[in-house]
Amino acid sequence: MSALELRARLRDGTAVVIAVAVPITLATLFGFALGGDDPPLRATIGMVDLDGGQFPAGVRHELLSAKELRGVVTLRDLPGQDQARRELDSGAIGSAIVFPAGFSTSVGAGEGGRIGVLTSPESPLAGVVARAIVDRISALVDARTLAVRAALLAGVSGDDVKDLVERNGAAGPALELGDDPLTGGKIDLSVYYGAGMAALFAFFVVGASMRGLLTERRHGTLDRIRAAPVPAWVPVAGKAAVGFALALTGACLNWAASTLIFGTTWGSPPAVFAVLAAHVLAATAITMLVTSRVRTDAQADGTLMMVSFVMAFLGGSLVPLFSLPGPLREVARLTPNAWTSTALTELAGADRAGWMGWADGMAAVAGPIGALCLIAGVTGGLAVWGLRKGLLR
């Protein structure tokens, strides 16, 4: 059955058009029109140093010397909070970090300290960057505070506490920003939309095969097959296998075309292939579920198109996930496209950052692959139940 289906799909040309020509063409057009690093992180952050001590100076030095933040974060020294608020209102800065007076002394004495963050709804990205920086600083403050208190409880004299803490690694502000998601490798939009088109058209490629079941039922072919000594599941399995193989081949060709045309990378090849295979498996199961719930070719076409584009929109195949409102980003977790987009974005960004090998790549996408397999298992089980009750009855 699979061989017959494959020959039919190749003979009428639909497989080549839907699986290869259209997604590669659209991905290429998107890449040329929108290609470039994504997202374009740029933030101007004000720094109010009312402390004048060692800690704010160390933080400023680390931020200015961090390679990952060059061209991303611009610091502006401001004399006070009032000036910072005026700069925020005028749009001159997107956020501000405020070190209160006595901060360094308080941290050094093991009493901790609180850093203020001023943000503006007009510059949400700068607020995210400032809060991420403050979160890192707070972790360092907590570590030093704990170390100082432990030293004092151990009976170390106050004069010796500072030297002891510094010798044991809790000395001062050393920010490790390399693994921060805001400063990791950015991806090229040609990669993003190439992956998006591969994810979207996987549904159409598998759908073209599964739709053939409805056509064969209308023409009486399924009845003749059931009259032969052939199990009822064979036609479904044959079409699903061909749809899966063609969709996976098309996705891999899209991946290869994106790499060759734009000279970009999607990340660790074994991990990318595993993600694409898991996505196509989920798309096959969802398409089977749609087929089990409709009665005519027209219903199948309309329903599959609606499901495919809704999942593509919510899942980041057409619109980047970070641009969606918060509630929609939560709903997106129900779609295979979102997990695929998240996994491939992680792989591409990490590979550009220079640390992703095949083992790291597989570990990084284990979660999304598990989610995709779960979606495939649930929808596939519902599809089998529906087919037994309807199409194959």
Rank of each mutant, 00 (worst) to 15 (best):
F309N: 02
L88P: 08
A282Y: 06
T287A: 05
F313G: 14
V307T: 12
L152F: 04
R388D: 08
L6G: 03
F103K: 10
S65H: 15
R70D: 10
A300E: 10
R9Q: 10
A154L: 11
G243F: 11
S2Q: 11
A271V: 09
I133A: 05
A256N: 05
P124W: 07
G220E: 06
E216T: 05
A150D: 13
F203Y: 14
R226S: 13
A237C: 12
E87T: 10
A228S: 15
A198R: 01
L334C: 09
A278T: 10
V191Y: 03
S323P: 00
T340P: 00
R9H: 06
S190E: 09
V280Y: 07
L140W: 06
V290W: 14
G367S: 08
A257R: 03
S138T: 12
T345W: 08
A57W: 00
L392R: 04
G155S: 02
V128G: 05
L289H: 06
V234E: 14
G361S: 09
R114I: 14
V307P: 13
A43F: 04
K162R: 12
V384P: 01
G46D: 00
S65W: 04
A274N: 07
V148Y: 00
W255A: 05
R149V: 05
S317I: 00
V107W: 00
V378D: 08
L253A: 13
G238P: 02
E216W: 05
D82V: 04
S2F: 14
F203R: 09
E122N: 11
L69K: 06
G380A: 06
R144N: 10
L246A: 10
D12W: 02
E176Q: 15
G196Q: 02
A101N: 14
E122K: 13
A232H: 12
A300L: 12
A338F: 06
T264P: 01
E330D: 10
P325C: 09
N168H: 13
G196R: 01
R224M: 09
G377T: 15
S123T: 15
P235K: 10
T287N: 14
E330G: 05
L213Y: 11
A154C: 07
A227R: 04
T379I: 07
R329H: 06
I24T: 15
T28D: 01
M306Q: 10
A96I: 13
D77M: 13
P231H: 13
L6D: 11
I45C: 04
S106Q: 11
R167A: 13
R167E: 15
F201C: 05
G302S: 15
V331D: 11
H219S: 07
V73D: 02
S106M: 06
L214D: 02
D142P: 00
F201P: 08
D51E: 09
A278F: 08
G196A: 01
K389A: 13
A251Y: 01
G377A: 15
A247P: 07
G302E: 06
G112Y: 00
